[in-house]
Design a protein around this nucleic acid. Structure first.
Lengths: 142, 142
DNA sequence: GTAGAAGTTGAAGTCAACTTCAAGTCAAGA
DNA sequence: TCTTGACTTGAAGTTGACTTCAACTTCTAC
């Protein structure tokens, strides 16, 4: 597949594919100056990258977990640790979703008067809810 | 409260508070050049901002949830939509976590060739995988 | 064989959310 | 009063993930 085909099939812009290759996240068969050629496995790799991003991993973290040819990193401990982190994130997101749904449905005239919402606020201000998307873990396009 | 007190109580750096004020997210009682003075309500407002951020809202979106006078004016539809988005993210994260755990345990030489991993990958990417700052990405053919 | 669409490169630009800096101001304690 | 330290400002810098640009080169079609 050439870059246009990969872009079309994956929905990822050609510029991003070139960027990923320069970053070392993916590899292509090509000599300097000639056109890139990607094997069919590229689509799975890109899916994996997108998945990692959705999980809040940086591109550098993703690269550290998977070699550009798609082989996983030997560091199984790292993978398990990341899985734990994701599970913790899931728990917080579940609480967040619940709170949001309540706030959206709550009949209280102002959310500052709604007990459930106030509880959420309290949790947020007491640091129970972490500020997720800082520079280390950039905010995904929710 | 002066800015140092607010910073201390909220855990948000003074520089960020100034930044928020310039952005129009919070207000202080002060004339140009003099020291800022914040009312006690600022802590709830900051909690609300942190909450919104944790929910994946941008600062601009959060600002739109306040009336010009600072009274919260929460868009219930937006909250419900955000909750839906978070739920969708949770589903993908669950697949990601499972995938990572499997990758950490699976003896297959390449996980992209492991049927279990591929199945999880497919499940995870079956929804549209969103990437950051990307406007109008064409829908993948996959 | 030539036009033009699409590819190549490195460098620079963008965007959000901050942080840091330089230069100056103010306020409380010795 | 003088020093010290926290505050003020606008401007510039940072970070991660891209996107856009300029200046080519190379396929593909006619």
């Amino acid at each position: 597949m050439d870059i246009a085909e990969v872009a079309k099939r994956s929905g990822i812009p050609a510029s991003t594919l070139r960027f990923y290759e320069k970053k070392g996240l993916i590899v292509s068969l090509s000599q300097q100056g000639t056109r890139r050629w990607f094997g069919p496995g590229i689509l799975d790799q890109l899916a994996l990258i997108s998945l990692g991003q959705a999980a809040g991993l940086s591109l550098d973290e993703i690269r550290s977990m998977f070699s550009p040819d798609g082989t996983p990193n030997i560091d199984r401990q790292l993978l398990a640790t990341k899985a734990d982190e994701i599970d913790a994130l899931i728990k917080r997101l579940e609480a967040m979703s619940k709170g949001l749904r309540h706030a959206a449905a709550c009949p209280a005239p102002s959310h500052l008067e709604c007990p459930t919402f106030k509880r959420l606020l309290k949790a947020a201000s007491s640091g129970v809810i972490e500020r997720r998307w800082n520079k280390a873990t950039p905010k995904p396009d929710l």
